[in-house]
């Protein structure tokens, strides 16, 4: 278990932690708009750390580049989708007050 492996395992572990945090957030947070945060955390931080960890283990620069491209695309699409979903929810007059999560 070289230092490199240790580092990559550490970052993969924290990446997975953010994913789990995202899922837990998705379940416990009261309102659609607050759940947005859970989703974006999992995307940006979770996948980012995961990609970092796997990048350390990758055997060629091409693979690292591909991992980064994947992460970038996920960032891009999750930002856009969250914006659009939130906006359409707003347009439909989704309740903004806490606790009123019923349509």
């Amino acid at each position: 278990m070289t230092l490199l492996d240790g580092l990559s395992l550490l970052s993969i572990a924290s990446g997975c932690f953010f994913f789990v945090a995202g899922s837990v957030g998705m379940l416990r947070l009261p309102d659609a708009f607050t759940r947005l945060h859970a989703l974006t955390k999992a995307d940006s931080a979770g996948l980012g750390l995961l990609v970092l960890g796997l990048g350390l283990q990758a055997d060629s620069w091409w693979t690292v580049l591909r991992l980064l491209l994947i992460w970038l695309l996920v960032l891009l699409s999750s930002a856009t989708t969250c914006h659009l979903i939130a906006q359409s929810a707003l347009r439909r007059g989704a309740a903004l007050r806490r606790g009123d999560n019923d349509e």
Partner: peptide, 8 residues
């Protein structure tokens, strides 16, 4: 870039 990374 990475030696025999697969451990035992």
């Amino acid at each position: 870039m990475r030696g025999g990374r697969k451990t035992a």
